[in-house]
Design a binder for these strands. Structure first.
Lengths: 243, 243
DNA sequence: CCAAAAGTGTTTCCTTTACACCCATGC
DNA sequence: GCATGGGTGTAAAGGAAACACTTTTGG
């Protein structure tokens, strides 16, 4: 609990804790789920990949710190639609220099139709999660575990919430939404069944009555939709193989 | 992230953070879900109800601190079967004295057939959640919110995991398990359908082949079961009304 | 015309739900 | 016998999975 019931311990008498936030930013590019990583410029773990994040300031809420750090360390100029705390990591040895407790947040940046060409993306890069899950990239500190936890939560959130819409631009087609599920879950879904499923889930999607969009190489134009007011999905949209 | 990429900020130059754990211990007594609360002995919020918890020590893991504080502040002499982190609370004003970031854990203590008569339970008491949800009891600090979050997570965990067995003694009947669901969800379930449901979910329960138990006032003796190896429930056990 | 993507129909299967009914005990 | 709670049967309703088929575009 909070100070006051264990007077036998004085926190001021010990080295202080530092509190940080680590942010797992996800997006989908080329039908691949990716996370935003930076290259560390200073030791420890210099030149290693790591999550963006940083110190919480003395008068700052945790989520405020996450938003601020995300803006500071990222060249992405749009605010995330979704920013959610998912876990806190405080093993005594997780940082070799001092005692650091870090609060993990995950965020979604919608897929931009034009992925920004790497200008000075030497510092921040959107890495496919397949690279991480294949063990081909190792992260600094305990960030491997943090990213693993965030991805697991994201996958399960797609089953039970309407959050997949946050990966899409404001107006999107049902196939766009299906490709989000396919990218995050790394599996194929039946287009017909998916269509019915999301349409019959009330408040999930709202029609725009614009039957807009002409395919680039054929195909029937798709209807456009916007996110509806629902946040939870019941019954859930079950993921294949997850039994 | 961790220190090292934002050299413009020196955490040592600011007042330190204190890091605490708060623990929401749940149990079921008289078919009611209850949480363990203590009365604060010192200001602030003196004589208010609050969650057990306390400071994380310099070389201690967060979960270790939760286990230790639970043992220290609680007259309960058995270790919880389940202890899980669910959220971290760090609003700058949540403690009027200093900056405290608190990591919330929730734990389950199995229902004991003989609820311990209140000996010196003036300090720790198992309060029905109905008292809290009815607004009749207010807690110190932001502990109302912390308890609310923990209860919401517990309710949803019963849908998707086998954790309800942790509320039961090692050997239990299917009706015992059903009463756990009914207490946590505060709703009635069909006994027959519940029976089939949990039995056909592979690895949820393992039979003891003891058709033991004789009712106290009639009724057919029930079969005894122990928890199986499964942790996740798929398909989930859906809660009524939750649509 | 053909290819491609959107969207609908249809059948089969499985799960859930409601509720009747049987089983085994105490009194 | 009757009450009580444990446990099974069963039929109707609803959702999911597989897949054929229609619609609307570009070439």
């Amino acid at each position: 609990m909070d100070p006051g019931t264990t007077p036998d311990y004085d926190p001021q008498a010990f080295p202080p804790f530092a509190v940080t936030v680590d942010i797992v930013v996800m997006t989908i590019i080329e039908d691949e789920l990716r996370v935003l990583l930076i290259r560390r410029a200073v030791p420890p773990f210099r030149d290693s990949w790591a999550l963006p994040g940083g110190f919480v300031r003395p008068d700052e809420d945790l989520s405020t710190a996450a938003v601020r750090e995300l803006a500071e360390e990222t060249s992405i100029n749009q605010e995330p639609d979704h920013l959610e705390q998912f876990g806190t990591y405080g093993h005594p040895d997780r940082d070799p220099r001092m005692r650091v407790v870090s609060v993990g947040y995950w965020a979604i940046i919608p897929d931009l139709p034009t992925p920004k060409g790497g200008s000075d993306a030497a510092y921040a890069e959107l890495v496919p999660v397949a690279e991480l899950e294949g063990g081909r990239i190792r992260l600094a500190f305990d960030h491997d575990r943090i990213v693993t936890d965030a991805i697991a939560l994201a996958r399960s959130s797609l089953e039970n919430t309407t959050i997949a819409t946050r990966f899409c631009p404001p107006e999107f087609t049902i196939s766009d939404l299906r490709r989000v599920y396919e990218a995050v879950w790394d599996s194929k879904l039946d287009p017909g069944n998916f269509q019915r499923k999301v349409k019959q889930t009330s408040e999930f999607l709202q029609p725009l009555n614009q039957t807009t969009r002409s395919g680039d190489k054929g195909g029937r134009p798709a209807a456009l939709w916007v996110k509806g007011p629902a946040e939870k999905l019941s019954p859930p949209l079950s993921r294949p193989d997850s039994n």
